[in-house]
Design a protein around this nucleic acid. Sequence first.
DNA 1: ACTCCAAAGCTAAGTGCATTAGCTTTATGG
DNA 2: CCATAAAGCTAATGCACTTAGCTTTGGAGT
Lengths: 190, 190
Amino acid sequence: MARAGLTPQAVVDLAVGIVDDEGPDALTLAKVAQRAGVATPSLYKHVDGLPALRRAVETRATEDLARVLNAAALGVSGDAAVRSLLTAYRDHVRTHPHRAAMLAGAPAPDDPAAQAAAASSVASLDAVVREYGASAADRIHLIRTLRAAVHGFAVLEAQGGFGLPQDIDTSFATLLDVLVAGLAPHRRTA
Amino acid sequence: MARAGLTPQAVVDLAVGIVDDEGPDALTLAKVAQRAGVATPSLYKHVDGLPALRRAVETRATEDLARVLNAAALGVSGDAAVRSLLTAYRDHVRTHPHRAAMLAGAPAPDDPAAQAAAASSVASLDAVVREYGASAADRIHLIRTLRAAVHGFAVLEAQGGFGLPQDIDTSFATLLDVLVAGLAPHRRTA
DNA sequence: ACTCCAAAGCTAAGTGCATTAGCTTTATGG
DNA sequence: CCATAAAGCTAATGCACTTAGCTTTGGAGT
């Protein structure tokens, strides 16, 4: 192939880097091209315009999160598993604060990778709440409850929505305590 | 004054309308000018550029939310108050889904109105958790817990982050139940 | 009623970005 | 060694934000 040896993958890598460094609003084709050492229109050989690139970055972020959650669900169970997963979620968003807002949307219906990543995250959460809900239909509400709570916390923390930065660890501990205590009545097995 | 009789207020009104209709990304000075029946540069007589207008819209959204929360905190107490406030929060975001993402940021430090609105929301929440925490320092963690949980739920719902739209009311009921049950151990007075 | 002036509007012009079209180069496979 | 398809480029268009500077208008004060 030709000079810079770009691939769709590499372009998305650069885009993710820009988002992590400067936030989603700073993602522009011009900036990606500059980092790639290439003229802006050349990117269209690898990516179908800015909106598509945004979606690809979102997919990548969803996949990374899924990996983290899957890892955090290994070898734990019960309340400890809930704490492990939620803590991993929060820590991941703290490490990548600019991705926070990207994690709330539905995966693109035409992107199997995004669908798979989303399903994988749900599966990790489902494993963790399995002992709190008998049927999958019951558990979905618990999964949504946990996801909403951590996601809200992570977004607020990442975007400075909590007034003072101090004591946020204590607040997160409170969140975990409240959720774990609130989940107790749903437990199936003593 | 002159022809269109614009004011900073009126410009922000139009901007809020655009955000509510088409989302934050659709907010452009050109579109505001079109709705106002005015040439784009004329807006600079009333507003200090697009970023400032965005902030003003955010402030307005924060104020509206505060009003809703204040109203929902009237004449209720205990668990019912928690449910009332959180339900009002969720309903408000459902009514204005495009504002969801705007409600996570810190209020601009140089905008007293935004500061006041944020403080007012916190005050409503504080009143509701007063019987669960003795000191203000204790309550802040409960406030953050509740806010994170509802905000996460509202954002995920508004942005389609929950897979299927059905059963979301049940999920929200579960969220409320879990939070109320989890809060119980913190109750001061029986 | 008249004058003046500040506010509110306008047009013109510059900049940056996204995107499309069409050309040129390069590397690779036959 | 050459043909070709991918990868890159330049040129050009359109849209949005923004600044500069001019024009109009409506009301305040006489």
